[in-house]
Design a protein around this nucleic acid. Structure first.
Length: 903
RNA sequence: GGGCGAUUGGCUCAGUGGUAGAGCGCCUCGUUCACACCGAGGAGGUCACUGGUUCGAACCCAGUAUCGCCCACCA
């Protein structure tokens, strides 16, 4: 464990000289970041015992994108947890990852360097990209220079490294207490090896498999798309009423995709639909193509949708896939991977049908649709005019054309989508996981309950983790997909496009009897789902892995529960038979002032660095920490200003609290010197705050902890500090005239004099000074997780070490110091002071106006408290003459009959 | 269509059974011997709506409306 300084003990500390004359927030970020780095304040100690470790599965931000306010928001939440746990005595394992994997990086490299990947090209050593930087403008696809895959990947890595630097500086400026010596990349060798090893083990256990099956396909990106990456969008189209030819007359169906008519394999209606019951089991013939089509019953058909009978094509939508699978229909796919109709006429079309198809071959679905509609109209098989409709179509979340469903060979990992037992097991895992807030669990359960297939993990792209498999080629040069060749785990990571499988020579690549590498890469989530294994050193550092896994906390956004959170649970369940972490902290969204989700496209994204430099990191952190987990928060500069004000107040109040006594006198932290009831009562209140803040943070409620601390702090400044400052000065600084008559007796102090009590009772002054120091010591630690810079600054004025390595405050010593002092004294005395202030405020006079006589009526139950602190109340209220204290039936203290001395 | 969340003073939000809270903003005043990135005081709300439970409801129950997010023959 790292060395810690002692908890607030009795050792005096002499640093009042080091309190700066003028305090401020500017420059604290750079200064303390540098110090923390030098001192290794947040360095993880790998020798710490396993039970002391708190490990955080930090979300690796996508470095090809830009950080926005939402990142600052949620990463602050995590940092508050990390700092709290560290102060609670945990050794916090808090690494940072960089997600530089996948399509976003590819795209950014294309735009930034003006290149595109052409896997057929050879590697060019020392390649210089034609362009560098975006200047706010991307290089158009037509102007992009084709480069080899290795060159392309080099550029991806180069740009990622640059981006990571920028990200790290921002995070450091924000004050994330990450151990920066432990960063990982999702595309680094280590992460690649982890992803490949996990995949190979899934493969060996039968959890990963390859299948030729219809799947969602993006014709623009030319890649398969997983269920989790779908986005349903409104898409305009038309309903076409088309006549099929039956023996008893035409059967009309309505379709939005008439171009799929040649792919029609059945007409389907609901089994209970009396209109179509007579047709079940019979066949009809399709218009134009004259193919014999069975009429079938299936409960998924909706009687009130369209004509109530649907044309099932291979494949128009996911329902078609379901029918095709469940009714064991033939596959008559006509749409190819490029989004165009197959160029060769399908075998099931003959005669006139083949002739019609010849007109469609090679056309996009859009032009094919027009052609088919025109032909239907000519043939008289189009009933009425098409009616416009807005339908929901599936899109790849990054694409702009509706997805097609095509058959392709893809890799899958079992995730319970086709297996009830596994699904139940994964739902049971969610029961074990503590979600913060708890209702987020429902999102997981809904998603898992609604899965309709296994997890598609293969992508037909270039930059990513390749599948570590090769296929032997038979004598005809056809790959033997069922028996993939795999490397050993020691060989990982491998790139099957350049590495050669065991038992083969490089020149056998692609030749009959030789081998070929799998050309796909893994879905980005296939790697991201392994962040715990990557961060904890599953492959590279088994000792670390044993200590840190399963991890303590996964912080993340609510939008990726179905992707990142779920897929991580899947991988961990399959590989380790456990949850990957025990807690999941879900942050909400940042919304615009008009309650819309903030996004780049709306042009309202504020750059985080600008925010941090303008308001200060503590201020921005305060805004973030004021929002509960799981709750959307408004982007509100006002809240940051409040945070800034708080941070400044912490500096100023601390400076003030440390300024009493002789300049070189030690600051006492000895609780025994706190003898005055008011001071003890303040400490009793603080003890309560410590308990509440601790309980709140233990249940991942940082807003509550901040709120109680902040409320106490402001009362401390406005009331307690005002009440005791004269006494704490001990007459050393002020002229005595003002104070000469603050002569009420002070409990625990036996002298009474016409002089200020503290002048002849140093114990009263000492009590206040020590109480101030003790309270400051505790409050700094309570604020430290949210305001790391201001608290560290103050700590450095008078204490040793970093506040961030201090133990979290404990209420017990405060209670011991407080003894049996009635805790209500601070409240009662504060209310009495407020009454005196009100008199002056209403008389529109300065708060420093002297009161030569006043009657103070206080609630009966406050009497004891006010009496106990009467000298301080008099001093703070500048009551220089008679103070007639009476009790009465009033809700709060009232001052009247005041005689104010105006000068 | 389903799920989840939200609806409290002009704004941002606390408050889960006992006479409505905070900060910002606003109004009035003060102040530069911790803090003008300041201080004090004040005004301002029938807690979205309708029913119900209860001695008592912002809070519990049912329904409605509006907003947000997620999902969508599976719900």
């Amino acid at each position: 464990m790292s060395p810690r300084t002692e908890p607030s003990g009795t050792a005096p500390t002499t640093l009042s000289r080091q309190v700066p004359e003028k305090v401020g927030l500017d420059g604290l970020e750079e200064r303390w970041d540098a110090t923390w780095e030098t001192d290794g304040t947040y360095r993880f100690d790998a020798d710490a015992p396993a039970e002391s470790i708190y490990s955080i599965d930090t979300p690796p931000p996508t470095v090809s994108g830009s950080l926005h306010v939402g990142h600052v928001f949620s990463y602050t939440h995590t940092d508050v947890v990390a700092r709290y746990r560290r102060m609670r005595g945990a050794e916090v394992f808090y690494p940072m990852g960089w997600d530089d994997n996948g399509l976003p990086t590819e795209r950014r490299v294309q735009n930034y360097y003006g290149v595109r990947c052409d896997p057929t090209l050879p590697y060019v050593p020392g390649f210089v990209p034609p362009h560098e930087g975006t200047d706010g403008k991307a290089v158009k696809p037509a102007d992009q220079v084709p480069v080899s895959r290795p060159n392309f990947i080099e550029l991806c890595e180069r740009l990622s490294a640059q981006d990571e630097q920028q990200f790290e500086s921002l995070w450091r400026y924000l004050g994330l207490s990450v151990d920066w010596s432990r960063t990982y990349q999702t595309i680094g060798d280590s992460a690649r090896a982890v992803a490949q090893q996990a995949f190979l083990r899934n493969l060996a256990r039968g959890e990963a498999y390859q299948q030729l099956a219809p799947g969602l396909w993006d014709v623009t990106f030319q890649t398969a798309v997983a269920q989790a990456e779908l986005e349903a969008r409104d898409y305009p189209g038309h309903f076409y009423k088309v006549a099929f030819h039956g023996e008893g007359g035409p059967v009309h169906i309505e379709t939005t995709r008439p171009e799929l008519l040649p792919a029609c394999v059945a007409l389907i209606a609901h089994p209970d639909d009396e209109r179509y019951q007579p047709l079940f089991g019979t066949t009809v013939r399709s218009p134009l193509f004259d193919v014999e089509i069975p009429v079938l019953a299936h409960p998924a058909a909706e009687p009130d949708k369209g004509a109530g009978i649907a044309m099932c094509c291979t494949f128009g939508d996911l329902t078609d896939v379901q029918w095709w699978r469940e009714l064991r229909l033939p596959n008559r796919t006509v749409v190819g991977r490029d989004g165009r109709l197959e160029r060769t006429t399908p075998e099931w079309l003959t005669g006139d049908g083949a002739a019609v198809y010849a007109e469609l071959a090679g056309k996009t679905t859009f032009s094919a649709r027009e052609a088919v509609v025109a032909a239907l109209r000519t043939a008289g098989d189009l009933d009425g005019e098409p009616t416009p409709t807005m339908r929901k179509a599936n899109f790849y979340e990054k694409g702009d054309k509706p997805l097609e469903i095509v058959s392709s060979r893809q890799w899958y990992i079992r995730n319970g989508g086709r297996d009830e037992d596994l699904r139940a097991a994964l739902l049971a895992r969610a029961e074990e996981l503590e979600f913060h807030p708890g209702f987020m669990r429902v999102r997981y359960e809904n998603w898992v309950g609604g899965l309709n297939g296994d997890w598609l993990i293969s992508r037909q792209r270039f930059f990513g983790v390749p599948f570590p498999v090769w296929y032997a080629l038979d004598a005809a040069g056809e790959p033997l997909y069922d028996t993939p060749l795999v490397p050993t785990e020691e060989q990982l990571p491998v790139d099957p496009s350049s590495d050669v499988p065991e038992g083969y020579a490089a020149d056998q690549r692609g030749v009959p009897g030789g081998f070929v590498g799998d050309s796909d890469i893994m879905d980005t989530w296939a790697t991201s789902s392994l962040t715990p294994q990557i961060a904890c050193g599953w492959r590279d550092d088994p000792a670390l892995f044993t200590k840190t896994f399963p991890m303590s906390l996964r912080p993340q956004g609510q939008d990726i529960i179905r992707t990142w959170l779920f897929s991580t649970v899947v991988r961990s369940h399959l590989e380790h038979g456990s949850l990957p972490w025990s807690h999941a902290g879900i942050s909400g969204w940042i919304l615009d002032p008009d309650r819309k989700k903030m996004s780049k496209s709306k042009g309202n994204v504020v750059t985080p660095m600008g925010l941090l430099t303008e308001h200060g990191s503590d201020a921005v952190r305060y805004w973030a920490a004021s929002a509960k987990l799981g709750t959307d928060a408004a982007f509100e500069v006002g809240q940051m200003k409040i945070g800034r004000r708080l941070a400044i107040k912490v500096l100023n109040a601390s400076k003030f609290a440390l300024s009493f006594g002789a300049p070189d006198a030690p600051v006492s932290l000895d609780p025994a010197t706190v003898t005055v009831p008011l001071d003890r009562a303040m400490l009793a209140g603080l003890a309560e705050v410590v308990d509440q803040a601790t309980a709140a943070l233990e249940s991942y409620d940082h807003t509550r902890a901040l709120e109680v601390t902040e409320t106490f702090f402001w009362t401390f400044c406005d009331d307690y500090l005002e009440l005791v400052k004269d006494r704490a000065y001990g007459g050393l600084r002020r002229g005595k005239s003002e104070l000469a008559r603050s002569s009420e007796p002070i409990d625990g102090v036996d002298e009474r004099s016409e002089e200020h009590a503290a002048d002849i009772n140093p114990a009263g002054a000492e009590s206040a000074r020590t109480a101030l120091a003790l309270a400051l010591d505790v409050m700094l630690r309570l604020f430290a997780p949210v305001l790391p810079f201001a608290t560290e600054e103050v700590w450095s004025w008078w204490r040793e070490g970093s506040v961030h390595r201090q133990p979290w405050p404990d209420a017990a010593p405060l209670r011991a110091a407080a003894g049996d002092a009635p805790p209500g004294i601070v409240v009662s005395a504060g209310a009495a002071l407020a009454a005196l202030r009100k008199v002056k405020s209403e008389a529109k006079l300065s708060m420093r106006t002297e009161v030569s006589s006043v009657r103070l009526t206080i609630p009966t139950d406050a009497a004891e408290g006010v009496r106990a602190a009467l000298a301080d109340v008099r001093a703070a209220g500048r009551v220089t003459g008679d103070l007639d204290l009476v009790t009465g039936d009033v809700p709060a203290p009232v001052a009247d009959d005041a005689v104010l001395v105006t000068s």
